[in-house]
Each structure stands twice: as C-alpha cells, then as structure tokens.
C-alpha cells in the first residue's frame, strides 16, 4: 500500500536528503531547520548544526522556535558570541553548507526576504530582513534553498535582492569574488531545481511523485527551463515519514506546553 504524505512532508524530506553526513551546516529557522534536524535523525547523524545565535554543534530534540532557543546552547559543542560567529566561523570559511528559506526567488537563485510590493521605503509587506542570510549565501561553501513553489514566490524580478545567488547568471557571481560557490539546489513542495552549469539558470531536474512538469512550469513566474530528462523524486520512506512526524509532534507539544 502506498504511503500517504503531504507535499510539505515531501519537500522537507527531499531537502533533508541533500545534506551530507558530517558537514558543518549553517541552518536558517523554519523549513531549513526542520530538514536539517530530520537529516540528523536519519541518514546524517554526524551533521554539525550551526545556528547564527552562536551555537555550534547543536543537537536539539525538538525544532527550535527561535534560532537561539535554550536547548540549542545546552546541547551545543561550543557557544560563541555573535561577532565571533560571523567573523571567525562564517567569514572564516569554516562552514561547508548553508541552508536558507526565502519569500521570493528568481531564476538565478537570488532571494528576497526584505520587502514585497510598493517601494523599499513604503512596501506593501515589510518582511524581517536579511539577518544572517546574505553572508550565509556569500560565504558558505555551497547553499541549499527551500521554499513552497508558487508564482508569488518564483518571480521574474525580485522586489528586493536580499541575498545573492548567481546575480545575473553566467560568471556574474564569480566576478563579484564571493568565497562560496552559491546555491546548488532549490527544493520545493513540487520538485527540485538545480543551476545550469554554465548559464546558472535554475533548471527543473526532478518532480516529486504525482507532480507533472506542466504543473511546476505553471507555478513558476518565468519560462522555466526543464532538463531533457526529469527524474521523479523517490517517495518518502516509512522511516523518513515516521521520524519527521515524530519530530513535528514533539515540537508542537513542547511549544504549546509552556505557560
């Protein structure tokens, strides 16, 4: 009998699978944190989770609500100050993989988490802003991005470029001399996009089970490039689903229980 699962669960599981065991991983809050913790509790138990609060090697049992929850520092190998986090560890080139979410993304995997609509001074929606994202995007060895796939998020032109992917494509990132190589995969609730090796344009390389290429094209705000052969993402395994659901349930209980 086929397993029942949601598109969000598929997204988180597909994102978790991209994490190599043992890599130091700079984790954004929300979807990236869920995927990183799932990876650590399945195929990548030695993943080194680094949160920008200064917690290095955190081993939380529930998903943190904020990037500085107490459990992160209690379980970390080291807790460092914020200036040290950003200068010695991130800028110092110690972190192999960065994992970010976003409100908007464009075809060169540049992301926006600052403002939507209107102008910068008078936006329609004011988002939290860059936080650590722009230096994570610049300085980690490589970057994974995860977000839900729809035309509001996958746009032809960003309202604001918060964190750089491949800028205008081609060698434009290389010309800026950023230390990291940039985003290597965008994992959504519909499929997986990877940058073209030369043009750096995001290309649909995998669709999740039950999703058609046409559907992904229709939910993308630019004419989406599709690989000659599009894979189907392997379905979640029983173990992946069980661990993810258990993690989410424990998290919900922990966050609701505090009075």
């Amino acid at each position: 009998m086929a397993l029942q699962y949601t598109s969000d669960e598929m997204m988180t599981i597909a994102a978790a699978r991209k994490i190599r065991n043992g890599a130091p991983l700079f984790v954004g809050i929300g979807l990236p944190s869920a995927a990183a913790n799932l990876a650590r509790q399945t195929h990548a138990p030695d993943t080194i989770l680094i949160y920008e609060s200064g917690t290095i090697g955190a081993k939380p049992t529930v998903l943190p609500l904020s990037i500085g929850d107490g459990e992160l520092s209690e379980t970390a190998d080291a807790v460092v100050s914020i200036p040290e986090m950003f200068s010695y560890w991130l800028q110092g080139g110690r972190i192999a993989l960065g994992f970010l979410g976003a409100a908007q993304i464009d075809k060169y995997a540049n992301i926006n988490s600052t403002v939507i609509g209107g102008t910068y001074q008078r936006p329609k929606v004011r988002l939290p802003g860059a936080g650590g994202a722009q230096e994570i995007a610049a300085s980690c060895g490589e970057v994974l991005i995860t977000l839900r796939h729809n035309k509001r998020a996958f746009v032809e032109t960003l309202d604001f470029l918060t964190s750089g992917g491949y800028f205008e494509g081609g060698d434009s990132r290389a010309k800026l001399n950023l230390p990291g190589k940039g985003p290597t995969a965008v994992i959504t609730d519909l499929g997986i996009l990877t940058p073209d090796p030369v043009t750096k344009e995001l290309t649909l390389t995998s669709v999740h089970p039950g999703v058609t290429v046409e559907q992904v094209v229709a939910e993308t705000g630019w004419p989406l490039k599709v690989a000659p052969h599009v894979d189907t993402t392997p379905e979640p395994t029983e173990k992946e689903l069980a661990v993810l659901r258990d993690l989410n349930e424990r998290t919900a209980r922990a966050h609701a229980g505090q009075q």
Binding site: Q91, Y120, A130, Q134
Partner: peptide, 13 residues
Amino acid sequence: LLRGYIGTDLTKH
C-alpha cells in the same frame, strides 16, 4: 570591516 553586502540591494538604500 567585513566581507559582506556585495551585490545586494541593501547597499542601494
């Protein structure tokens, strides 16, 4: 001093 902000829109505003 830092290696940062390069290529981003924050520098425009």
